[in-house]
Amino acid sequence: MKTSQEEIKSATLGSIGREKCLTGIEGLDSILGGGIPRNNTILLTGNCGTGKTSLSLEFLLHGAVSGENGLYLSVTEPFEKLIANMIPYDFFRRDLIKSGKMTFIDISAIYSRLGFKRDKMSLEDVDLLVVALGDLTRETKARRLVIDSITSIAYQLDTQEKLRNLMLGLSKMLSGLGTTSLVISEMTAADSSYSKYGVEEAVADGVILMGNMERNGDLLRTLQVIKMRGTSHSRAKYVLDLSTAGTLLVPLLKGGSA
Protein backbone atom coordinates (compact mmCIF):
# COMPACT_ATOMS: atom_id res chain seq x y z
CA MET A 1 0.00 0.00 0.00
CA LYS A 2 1.26 3.43 -0.91
CA THR A 3 2.00 5.92 1.83
CA SER A 4 0.44 9.34 1.45
CA GLN A 5 3.87 10.78 0.65
CA GLU A 6 4.32 8.27 -2.18
CA GLU A 7 0.87 9.13 -3.49
CA ILE A 8 1.72 12.82 -3.47
CA LYS A 9 5.01 12.06 -5.20
CA SER A 10 3.35 9.99 -7.91
CA ALA A 11 0.89 12.78 -8.58
CA THR A 12 3.58 15.41 -9.01
CA LEU A 13 5.10 16.65 -12.24
CA GLY A 14 6.77 14.00 -14.28
CA SER A 15 5.92 10.99 -12.20
CA ILE A 16 3.93 9.17 -14.86
CA GLY A 17 6.08 6.11 -14.35
CA ARG A 18 8.40 6.06 -17.38
CA GLU A 19 12.10 5.70 -16.72
CA LYS A 20 13.80 9.03 -17.39
CA CYS A 21 17.04 9.87 -19.12
CA LEU A 22 18.59 12.72 -17.11
CA THR A 23 19.89 15.26 -19.57
CA GLY A 24 22.26 16.51 -16.85
CA ILE A 25 21.10 20.04 -17.60
CA GLU A 26 19.62 20.85 -14.20
CA GLY A 27 17.04 23.37 -15.32
CA LEU A 28 15.87 21.25 -18.26
CA ASP A 29 15.52 18.12 -16.14
CA SER A 30 13.40 20.13 -13.76
CA ILE A 31 11.21 21.44 -16.63
CA LEU A 32 10.83 17.85 -17.87
CA GLY A 33 9.87 16.50 -14.47
CA GLY A 34 13.07 14.46 -14.15
CA GLY A 35 14.41 14.14 -17.67
CA ILE A 36 13.45 12.83 -21.10
CA PRO A 37 11.43 9.59 -21.00
CA ARG A 38 13.88 6.85 -21.96
CA ASN A 39 14.01 5.75 -25.62
CA ASN A 40 12.10 8.82 -26.81
CA THR A 41 13.09 10.66 -29.97
CA ILE A 42 12.99 14.41 -29.38
CA LEU A 43 12.97 17.14 -31.97
CA LEU A 44 15.22 19.97 -30.83
CA THR A 45 14.18 22.83 -33.03
CA GLY A 46 14.95 26.51 -33.47
CA ASN A 47 16.51 29.27 -35.51
CA CYS A 48 20.24 29.63 -36.00
CA GLY A 49 22.24 30.79 -32.99
CA THR A 50 19.76 29.61 -30.41
CA GLY A 51 22.05 26.97 -28.86
CA LYS A 52 20.73 23.70 -30.33
CA THR A 53 24.14 22.22 -31.05
CA SER A 54 25.56 23.30 -27.68
CA LEU A 55 22.61 21.87 -25.77
CA SER A 56 22.78 18.56 -27.63
CA LEU A 57 26.56 18.28 -27.10
CA GLU A 58 26.03 18.91 -23.40
CA PHE A 59 23.36 16.19 -23.33
CA LEU A 60 25.88 13.71 -24.76
CA LEU A 61 28.65 14.94 -22.51
CA HIS A 62 26.66 14.51 -19.30
CA GLY A 63 25.68 11.04 -20.47
CA ALA A 64 29.30 10.10 -21.18
CA VAL A 65 30.43 11.39 -17.78
CA SER A 66 27.75 9.27 -16.10
CA GLY A 67 28.73 6.18 -18.11
CA GLU A 68 26.30 6.24 -21.05
CA ASN A 69 27.83 6.10 -24.51
CA GLY A 70 26.82 8.86 -26.90
CA LEU A 71 26.85 9.14 -30.68
CA TYR A 72 26.86 12.46 -32.53
CA LEU A 73 25.96 12.34 -36.21
CA SER A 74 26.98 15.51 -37.92
CA VAL A 75 25.60 16.50 -41.26
CA THR A 76 26.66 20.11 -41.26
CA GLU A 77 30.05 20.37 -39.53
CA PRO A 78 33.26 18.31 -39.48
CA PHE A 79 34.09 16.81 -36.07
CA GLU A 80 37.23 18.89 -35.46
CA LYS A 81 35.43 22.15 -36.19
CA LEU A 82 32.59 21.12 -33.91
CA ILE A 83 34.94 20.39 -31.01
CA ALA A 84 36.98 23.54 -31.66
CA ASN A 85 33.82 25.65 -31.46
CA MET A 86 32.38 23.81 -28.49
CA ILE A 87 31.98 25.76 -25.25
CA PRO A 88 34.92 24.81 -22.98
CA TYR A 89 32.72 23.06 -20.45
CA ASP A 90 34.23 22.51 -17.00
CA PHE A 91 33.18 18.86 -17.21
CA PHE A 92 34.55 18.13 -20.71
CA ARG A 93 37.39 15.62 -20.91
CA ARG A 94 39.16 14.59 -24.12
CA ASP A 95 39.43 11.02 -22.86
CA LEU A 96 35.65 10.69 -23.17
CA ILE A 97 36.21 10.72 -26.94
CA LYS A 98 39.34 8.58 -26.89
CA SER A 99 37.64 5.94 -24.74
CA GLY A 100 34.64 5.77 -27.06
CA LYS A 101 32.19 7.22 -24.57
CA MET A 102 31.48 9.89 -27.16
CA THR A 103 31.66 9.10 -30.87
CA PHE A 104 31.42 11.68 -33.62
CA ILE A 105 30.54 10.55 -37.13
CA ASP A 106 30.27 12.66 -40.25
CA ILE A 107 27.21 11.43 -42.12
CA SER A 108 29.07 11.64 -45.42
CA ALA A 109 31.08 8.61 -44.22
CA ILE A 110 27.83 6.66 -43.89
CA TYR A 111 26.70 7.79 -47.33
CA SER A 112 30.02 6.57 -48.76
CA ARG A 113 29.72 3.25 -46.94
CA LEU A 114 26.24 2.81 -48.41
CA GLY A 115 27.42 3.83 -51.87
CA PHE A 116 24.97 6.74 -52.14
CA LYS A 117 25.86 8.74 -55.22
CA ARG A 118 22.57 10.38 -56.12
CA ASP A 119 21.54 13.85 -55.02
CA LYS A 120 18.16 12.53 -53.93
CA MET A 121 17.52 9.38 -51.91
CA SER A 122 15.01 6.76 -52.95
CA LEU A 123 12.67 5.07 -50.45
CA GLU A 124 15.06 2.09 -50.46
CA ASP A 125 17.96 4.43 -49.66
CA VAL A 126 16.00 5.79 -46.69
CA ASP A 127 15.50 2.25 -45.38
CA LEU A 128 19.20 1.51 -45.89
CA LEU A 129 20.14 4.68 -44.02
CA VAL A 130 17.93 3.73 -41.06
CA VAL A 131 19.51 0.27 -40.93
CA ALA A 132 23.02 1.76 -41.16
CA LEU A 133 22.31 4.20 -38.34
CA GLY A 134 20.96 1.31 -36.29
CA ASP A 135 24.14 -0.68 -36.90
CA LEU A 136 26.23 2.29 -35.87
CA THR A 137 24.19 2.79 -32.71
CA ARG A 138 24.72 -0.89 -31.83
CA GLU A 139 28.44 -0.79 -32.65
CA THR A 140 29.03 2.22 -30.43
CA LYS A 141 26.58 0.95 -27.76
CA ALA A 142 25.07 4.42 -27.80
CA ARG A 143 22.37 5.11 -25.21
CA ARG A 144 22.19 8.71 -26.39
CA LEU A 145 22.19 9.94 -29.95
CA VAL A 146 22.20 13.34 -31.61
CA ILE A 147 21.47 13.94 -35.29
CA ASP A 148 22.57 17.41 -36.36
CA SER A 149 20.50 18.03 -38.37
CA ILE A 150 17.47 16.24 -39.79
CA THR A 151 16.83 19.33 -41.92
CA SER A 152 20.13 18.84 -43.76
CA ILE A 153 19.36 15.17 -44.36
CA ALA A 154 15.90 16.14 -45.57
CA TYR A 155 17.40 18.24 -48.37
CA GLN A 156 18.14 14.91 -50.05
CA LEU A 157 14.57 13.69 -49.66
CA ASP A 158 12.24 14.99 -52.30
CA THR A 159 8.94 13.87 -50.79
CA GLN A 160 7.33 14.17 -47.38
CA GLU A 161 6.70 10.41 -47.50
CA LYS A 162 10.45 9.76 -47.47
CA LEU A 163 10.96 12.13 -44.58
CA ARG A 164 8.12 10.50 -42.66
CA ASN A 165 9.63 7.08 -43.34
CA LEU A 166 13.01 8.27 -42.15
CA MET A 167 11.67 9.79 -38.94
CA LEU A 168 9.40 6.84 -38.16
CA GLY A 169 12.11 4.33 -39.01
CA LEU A 170 14.66 6.13 -36.87
CA SER A 171 12.30 6.57 -33.98
CA LYS A 172 11.25 2.89 -33.98
CA MET A 173 14.81 1.61 -34.41
CA LEU A 174 16.30 3.87 -31.70
CA SER A 175 13.51 3.13 -29.27
CA GLY A 176 14.05 -0.59 -29.81
CA LEU A 177 17.74 -0.17 -29.08
CA GLY A 178 17.07 1.71 -25.83
CA THR A 179 18.53 4.93 -27.18
CA THR A 180 17.26 8.37 -26.26
CA SER A 181 17.77 10.81 -29.12
CA LEU A 182 17.82 14.47 -29.92
CA VAL A 183 17.11 15.20 -33.56
CA ILE A 184 17.98 18.77 -34.45
CA SER A 185 15.73 20.72 -36.78
CA GLU A 186 16.69 24.06 -38.27
CA MET A 187 13.98 26.62 -38.60
CA THR A 188 13.88 30.03 -40.16
CA ALA A 189 12.06 33.03 -38.75
CA ALA A 190 9.47 32.60 -41.50
CA ASP A 191 8.56 29.02 -40.50
CA SER A 192 5.12 28.79 -38.96
CA SER A 193 5.47 25.27 -37.54
CA TYR A 194 8.13 23.73 -35.32
CA SER A 195 10.04 22.13 -38.20
CA LYS A 196 10.96 22.84 -41.79
CA TYR A 197 8.59 20.30 -43.32
CA GLY A 198 6.03 19.85 -40.55
CA VAL A 199 6.45 16.06 -40.60
CA GLU A 200 9.30 15.95 -38.07
CA GLU A 201 7.32 17.45 -35.19
CA ALA A 202 4.37 15.14 -35.74
CA VAL A 203 6.49 12.00 -35.64
CA ALA A 204 8.78 12.96 -32.75
CA ASP A 205 7.90 11.97 -29.17
CA GLY A 206 8.79 15.42 -27.97
CA VAL A 207 9.50 18.91 -29.23
CA ILE A 208 11.86 21.36 -27.53
CA LEU A 209 11.76 24.80 -29.10
CA MET A 210 14.74 27.12 -28.80
CA GLY A 211 14.45 30.72 -29.88
CA ASN A 212 15.69 34.28 -29.85
CA MET A 213 13.31 36.71 -28.21
CA GLU A 214 13.65 40.44 -28.49
CA ARG A 215 12.40 42.54 -25.59
CA ASN A 216 12.97 46.28 -25.56
CA GLY A 217 16.01 45.87 -27.78
CA ASP A 218 17.54 43.04 -25.72
CA LEU A 219 17.94 39.66 -27.42
CA LEU A 220 17.29 36.72 -25.11
CA ARG A 221 17.86 33.04 -25.86
CA THR A 222 14.77 31.07 -24.89
CA LEU A 223 13.73 27.44 -24.45
CA GLN A 224 10.24 25.98 -24.26
CA VAL A 225 9.10 22.37 -24.14
CA ILE A 226 6.18 22.14 -26.54
CA LYS A 227 5.43 18.45 -26.20
CA MET A 228 6.94 15.47 -24.40
CA ARG A 229 5.16 12.14 -24.46
CA GLY A 230 5.48 10.11 -21.28
CA THR A 231 5.92 12.91 -18.78
CA SER A 232 4.17 15.93 -17.38
CA HIS A 233 6.24 18.99 -18.11
CA SER A 234 6.30 22.73 -17.83
CA ARG A 235 5.15 24.57 -20.94
CA ALA A 236 6.51 27.91 -19.79
CA LYS A 237 9.22 29.80 -21.63
CA TYR A 238 12.67 29.98 -20.05
CA VAL A 239 15.70 32.15 -20.71
CA LEU A 240 18.99 30.33 -21.07
CA ASP A 241 22.67 31.02 -20.90
CA LEU A 242 25.27 28.76 -22.50
CA SER A 243 28.09 28.84 -19.99
CA THR A 244 31.18 26.81 -19.18
CA ALA A 245 29.27 25.52 -16.15
CA GLY A 246 26.65 24.15 -18.57
CA THR A 247 23.33 25.45 -19.84
CA LEU A 248 21.62 27.59 -17.22
CA LEU A 249 17.90 28.30 -17.28
CA VAL A 250 15.66 30.77 -15.49
CA PRO A 251 11.98 31.59 -16.05
CA LEU A 252 11.25 34.32 -18.57
CA LEU A 253 10.02 37.38 -16.71
CA LYS A 254 6.68 38.55 -18.01
CA GLY A 255 6.36 41.81 -16.12
CA GLY A 256 2.62 41.49 -15.90
CA SER A 257 2.22 41.11 -19.68
CA ALA A 258 1.12 38.03 -21.58
Partner: peptide, 9 residues
Protein backbone atom coordinates in the same frame (compact mmCIF):
# COMPACT_ATOMS: atom_id res chain seq x y z
CA UNK B 1 17.06 45.60 -18.31
CA UNK B 2 18.32 42.03 -18.82
CA UNK B 3 17.12 40.91 -15.40
CA UNK B 4 17.08 37.25 -16.38
CA UNK B 5 20.79 37.55 -17.20
CA UNK B 6 21.48 38.80 -13.68
CA UNK B 7 19.84 35.64 -12.33
CA UNK B 8 21.76 33.49 -14.83
CA UNK B 9 25.13 35.03 -13.93
Amino acid sequence: TMLENIMLK
